[in-house]
Design a protein around this nucleic acid. Structure first.
Lengths: 229, 229
DNA sequence: GGTTTGCCGATTGTCTACAAATTACTGATT
DNA sequence: AATCAGTAATTTGTAGACAATCGGCAAACC
């Protein structure tokens, strides 16, 4: 707890909301590990606040699935198993196909150029072998795709699932390689959308999700042979 | 605020969670109307507790979309517009098709008999012209279908969307008739699943969702011609 | 007359305090 | 040495109190 942690958002939104996103960061960045117990007082101290707002943030995080609460025992960082990750991928395949179909029908020219700029950025990241940078853009790319559909519930659902999937990754694998492959798929996706063929675009996105799941499985197997559990 | 409201769940789960479901009921039953401001102190008094747990419950409800919060102004019951309901139906069509495909592959004999008992119950409700009873069973029927897939995230997502859809109904329409039609569709769905044909089952469920949306639209138009907005 | 300014009540947001429960620890006992 | 009971120390859950903010109303001003 060297630095008191940013929390600059404060003015924009409410304090509990700011704490919520901050705790979320701590989880997704791995400072709070899956299964670990969350100490309210410590977090309150860290954010220079009292336990009230922290508790509110934890309730919100519980509702969105990042945290699990046990009565009189406190909150724990949810640990997402491979099986659960698989469940999430089942959903993502379905949603992604829907995204592809919709986008083929309704995407605008300027949106396509924006997608292409993401592709270029990812190419750069690949060339530099900048894995973390690549993943950042990759996330933004997919979220942008979903947002372009213009369905707020879809976006919300997608983001929720994505976060849980990120949590699984934390469980103990370092991301099995082959991210240049992933970028080739991204280009296929954009081309398919640009072709305005719903069938093709839907298939492209679904395939990408499916391949992504396969990569996860490979990484899981690799990690499984390295570490005990 | 005649009766102090049940809240018996208390022992099973945490107090904030109990309050959350209780407020949820108040919303879905229409005692708290869409757009209405939620007074924390009043709710706390009603549940014989302090504002802390109530605030935690409201945070959770905000995260799951039933409530909207404005800084320094409090929480309001979310009002779901027709446009948003449409968004939700877009998603439900996709998810329901997925449910159909999956169930055609994996459903068990005993699960089928359970579904058929729902059909019978609904027939009874139709015969009695018991609208509210029918809707209760209808909800349970669809939730059961989704649960049979065995994907917890799917179930959670589906329930979330269903709740929001229920909120739209509250906005001012009394459910345009034709619920015997809906029940005929339910039978088609069960038959399609029992046939073990994923394509057919998927189509049946998707069609049902689509028709359900159409019914909503008709009801909305009817309500629109009755009331100002 | 219409707009602005300043107060007042009501409500939210946060903090501190305390009770209840759980966990960790100590020491005796088998 | 291991186990179990009993006690101390954390930690959670809730209550109550106080400051900050918002909305409305009336008086003052242009």
């Amino acid at each position: 707890m060297a630095n008191p942690t940013s929390l600059q958002i404060l003015l924009e939104t409410s304090l509990p909301a700011a704490i919520q996103t901050e705790i979320e960061k701590l989880i997704l960045v791995g400072e709070l590990c899956p299964g670990q117990r969350i100490n309210e007082a410590l977090l309150a101290e860290r954010f220079h606040t009292s336990r009230g707002p922290v508790r509110e943030a934890l309730r919100a995080l519980e509702e969105c699935g990042l945290v699990r609460a046990e009565r009189n025992r406190g909150s724990f960082v949810r640990s997402v198993s491979l099986g659960e990750a698989d469940e999430i991928y089942d959903l993502r395949e379905v949603l992604d196909e829907f995204v592809g179909r919709k986008l083929a029908e309704c995407i605008l020219a300027e949106q396509l150029t924006q997608l292409r700029s993401f592709l270029a950025e990812m190419d750069v990241a690949v060339a530099r072998k900048d894995l973390t940078g690549y993943h950042q853009i990759n996330l933004r790319f997919h979220e942008t795709l979903v947002d372009f559909v213009g369905n707020s519930r879809l976006s919300a659902t997608y983001r929720r699932l994505t976060k849980e999937l990120l949590m699984y990754r934390l469980h103990g694998l370092k991301e099995g390689g082959g991210f240049s492959v992933s970028n080739a798929e991204h280009k296929t996706i954009v081309k398919a959308i640009a072709s305005r063929d719903p069938e093709r675009a839907g298939r492209a996105l679904r395939t990408h999700a499916s391949d992504s799941r396969t990569r996860m499985h490979r990484a899981a197997i690799a990690a499984g042979s390295r570490v005990a559990r």
